[in-house]
Design a protein around this nucleic acid. Structure first.
Lengths: 147, 147
DNA sequence: AGTAAAAAAGACCTTAAAATCTTTTATAAT
DNA sequence: ATTATAAAAGATTTTAAGGTCTTTTTTACT
């Protein structure tokens, strides 16, 4: 479904959110530990996310990753997926048929479409903040982060 | 979502079904042309599918791939996906969280579960035959196959 | 000014999926 | 029996995702 990289990206942003709620400004090593992912790989992902302005970073002493007022606005999972997987993620045929759309449906299009749409809506509804809140409330766990 | 290999497998079986309805017994080259996939790669996939007894093959002159009385029974897409992707496909967390299930839900589990379940039900309902029939009826197109 | 801390950047490596090439085995027609 | 045909099997290659290592740049503290 989602690539491992996208999964890391979502969890990494949640880690930043949870850390900043505690007044921290995490670096990639902290994030990597939180989400149980390889440090350098997380560093690369954070570079992508900052390049796309989902959050900001500062180098040097006391540096790290954080959200600004702008970013503090909700980051939808949809945005993260769009950036990491590309826009075609939301339209390409789930069964690999070429030219599959409403006008030219593959044999599964009509039944699959609503499912994909439901998933898209989920990604358009949930945000990094909403995930973080669920975790803080103890309604959900986030692997190591919650331990 | 599904790997390319699984997509090929589903389409390949549909190709066999459509061909046998025309009294043909296709070989891997015919199938590959039908579904627009690499010949040798299709050959490998057909080997897997026959090894798992989803259909039969005969070598030599006049050989090819076909369904027996046994296989003529509906092959559910679920079976194909199970074979090609493994059983964990239907249970693993869609967002990469460890230990995500009803008891230990990730922050998206409760909303994602019904979507995944709907997809699973689709795979448990649709069969190779049902796809082939839709294509024959002209209700759907199957890339090159339909041309 | 010098140094330590941290992200950015670039080069490189590893693994798994996808794809190809070659040889072997089975089948049927001549 | 020989030959043509076709799948099976095995080895190999290619590509892309995932992951690592090293150097550079930025920043703050002393």
């Amino acid at each position: 479904m989602l690539s491992k990289t996208t999964e890391y990206a979502i969890r990494a942003l949640v880690s930043v959110e949870l850390n900043s709620r505690k007044g921290q400004r995490p670096g990639f090593k902290t994030i990597a530990r939180d989400i149980d992912a390889p440090e350098q790989y997380v560093a690369k992902i954070m570079q992508t996310l900052t390049r796309f302005k989902l959050l900001k970073s500062v180098r040097g002493r006391g540096g790290g990753f954080f959200f600004t007022e702008d970013n503090q606005q909700d980051i939808f999972l949809y945005d993260v997926v769009w950036i990491m997987e590309g826009k075609t993620f939301f339209t390409r045929c789930g069964f690999g048929f070429k030219h599959c759309d409403a006008n030219n449906p593959c044999p599964l299009h009509n039944e699959y479409e609503p499912i994909r749409e439901a998933f898209t809506q989920l990604l358009k509804k949930e945000t990094i903040r909403s995930l973080a809140t669920k975790i803080e409330k103890g309604e959900a766990v986030l692997s190591r982060l919650s331990v």
